[in-house]
Design a protein around this nucleic acid. Sequence first.
DNA 1: CTCAATGCAAATCCTTTGCATACCT
DNA 2: AGGTATGCAAAGGATTTGCATTGAG
Lengths: 146, 146
Amino acid sequence: MKKSKFGELLKTVGLKKTKHRLLLLDLLHQHDEFLSADDLFLRAKAIDDSISLSTVYRILDSFIECEIVSPVSLDDQKQLFYELKHEEHAHHLICTRCHKVIHVHSCPVHDFEEEIQLEHHFHVEKHKLEFYGVCEECMENEKETV
Amino acid sequence: MKKSKFGELLKTVGLKKTKHRLLLLDLLHQHDEFLSADDLFLRAKAIDDSISLSTVYRILDSFIECEIVSPVSLDDQKQLFYELKHEEHAHHLICTRCHKVIHVHSCPVHDFEEEIQLEHHFHVEKHKLEFYGVCEECMENEKETV
DNA sequence: CTCAATGCAAATCCTTTGCATACCT
DNA sequence: AGGTATGCAAAGGATTTGCATTGAG
């Protein structure tokens, strides 16, 4: 999605086009890691000093409400992270060393969902699949250090 | 695992056997939902009024440290939840209505991990797979109400 | 007896809210 | 103009910490 499209995106979901919302969309789009509200606030403030942390929270809430952003919680962190929703269904490889996030679009789980419906009489609405481990660069770095 | 085994479990991991630790292990073992620190505190306090919330947090931290409990975060809740680690690898069906948790022991993901190693040069250490949806009872209830 | 575990209260971190003002449509 | 978005400061909720006391080994 091109940066210039964000204005339209906001219109589509029925949110007013403000500089702060555009800025946050841009930041979310640029960064492929998970970002916390505070990460976003600091990066936004570096570009536009007038933004406040509560605005960041309020904007993120409105984005979640409109389903253009997903909140992501990681088991070992108490704060929430946020990411732009991808058009495609995706899963994540999360590096436990550098916290980089790699998106994977193939998904081995859909068939399994049917099994679950049948076996457990549980109606699956969505699933979440994440892999935790070490990314290529961190693996290189660890080799060198040892 | 029988209740009487918890004392040994504590010895095995090198933690002193105190009544509060035994009580929390017992509560975690009894309940198949995810429990928050506060859930545990309230249930524990009902049994032994002398326990304090900070003790619950400290005990949970020690259990996580010793790897007998896992912290679990859910995207739409800001507090952490806790569950006893199961001997078996397991995944969860989480009811978005009543928050019940069903454990599923089959896992469709292991082959996929190899693909990831090859394709993304990412060394997978563990994965997390959760299904969100509606359990059988809640489905029944919704039918009736509609 | 000795050190780790605990209770209590205060502190901290993350997030939300109230209210007056500024900004989009 | 009219109502939403924002800044600021204060409140709230979850978790952590300091310190004196209790309890397990």
